[in-house]
Simulated assay, not measured.
Amino acid sequence: MIRNSINITNSPVPVLLFSKSGGLSLKGMFSRKKPKISVVIPVYNVENYLRQCLDSVINQTLDDIEIICVNDGSTDSSPDILEEYSRKDSRIRIISQENMGLSGARNTGMKYIKGEYVYFLDSDDYIELDALNQMYNISKNNSLDMLMFKTCSFDDVSGKNYTTPYFEMEFLEEMVKDNVFSYRDLGEKMYDLAVAVHGVVFKSDLVSDIRFPQGLIFEDNPFFTEALFRAKKVMFYRHYLHHYRTRSDSLSNAGSRNFSDIIEIRNRIIELAKKYDNFEEYAAVLYKKKLYNIRSRFLNTSDEYKEDFFAKIQADFKKHEKEYKTSEAFKQLKRYYKSIFNAGLTSKDYKEFESKIDRK
């Protein structure tokens, strides 16, 4: 059985591909048959969860897939687990690199995908055993660019399953039902969608030149948004195909050091709206989203990081002051949103800013 293992440093070009016997092999890298789905799995220090994730993928009812695992500089036993699984399943390709973060790992994986569709799965989550088959058949039968579906969360400690309004998207279910749609059919509600890429399978051609923003958290936002702007045919499959593990040490839950990234992320969403001629109509919505997200993330940031966060807020607000204050859409915002912006401009320090925006 072939073990597909690539080691890279800063180069996007594969350096070595070894067979089980240790000799150089090209088998598996240049398969003539195009897989139906490429599954990209970033891996970083997840030895306690990786087996459950991989088991859910290698045992899929859809066989014609490729599994691209990007070892992002793991220092635990995750690389050994990947090697173990690659010896059992030749569909697994391991790409090892220095740590570049979640976005960097996904972007590396995208350089090697050959599937008709691509699905991004985090290595501490798992999917239903018929998930990829359902994703492919629905997407193929309806000539979709994107298929969205539901995510069920589960607590890492208790194992309890639960759902959240964010992933349920009841408003979307009511709006589109089982029909094909595009972002234009959603109006301003497109900015309320769950943007997590683990809840979407994409046509590979649609996203071939889109990349996740490296060095930022909330990285799914601009990737998903640009893909949605491009997609002509989207569906919402009202079934739970993905299981999302909630961990107290995850980037999104314990990453308040990086919560200030939301400023850059929201700016990128605004720029994408401008790029795809969606800004003028929904400028007010985009301004509200930015200000609300900044306030929310700031108030949930640990005190030790608030000074730096506030400095970035103030710099950003000053940079956009003229643009925003001369915008008719901004002028129409409720006082609540304007007060956040004005507080960022006028507060002398983060404590004053916090006192102004934390009023109920």
Rank of each mutant, 00 (worst) to 15 (best):
P35Q: 05
I270Q: 03
D220A: 08
S5H: 07
G215V: 02
S204T: 15
A315E: 06
L102C: 04
M100N: 12
R266K: 09
E83M: 10
D72A: 05
P35L: 01
F212V: 05
Y85A: 01
V197G: 01
E328T: 13
L129F: 04
L286V: 05
A227C: 09
N137C: 06
N45C: 09
Y292T: 15
E98F: 03
C69F: 05
D80L: 15
N7V: 09
D205L: 11
S78L: 01
F154V: 10
E170C: 09
Y126E: 11
L216A: 06
A343G: 14
K114H: 04
K360T: 14
F30V: 03
R106L: 10
T301D: 03
E128M: 15
L82R: 05
T108L: 08
I92V: 10
L186Y: 08
L291D: 08
G159K: 02
S123M: 09
K34P: 03
K189D: 05
Y282K: 12
S103K: 03
E281I: 11
K33Y: 07
E128H: 15
N293R: 11
N278V: 02
E271G: 06
L299H: 04
S302Y: 05
L144D: 11
L16C: 11
K306H: 00
G101C: 10
Y276G: 12
V207S: 10
Y337T: 02
I95V: 13
Y324L: 15
I94L: 13
S96K: 13
D205Y: 07
N107I: 06
H239Q: 11
I269C: 12
F298C: 12
L129S: 08
E168W: 03
K312C: 01
H320K: 14
I357K: 14
K289V: 00
E173Y: 03
V39G: 00
V234T: 08
K290G: 10
I67D: 05
R295A: 07
E66R: 01
E47N: 06
Y350R: 01
E354G: 00
K334W: 04
D192Q: 12
F310E: 04
H242P: 00
I357P: 13
F149Q: 12
K114W: 07
P12C: 01
G344K: 04
E47H: 06
V195Y: 14
R91T: 14
S355Q: 14
L147I: 02
K114M: 02
T246Q: 14
T151M: 12
S327L: 07
F171S: 06
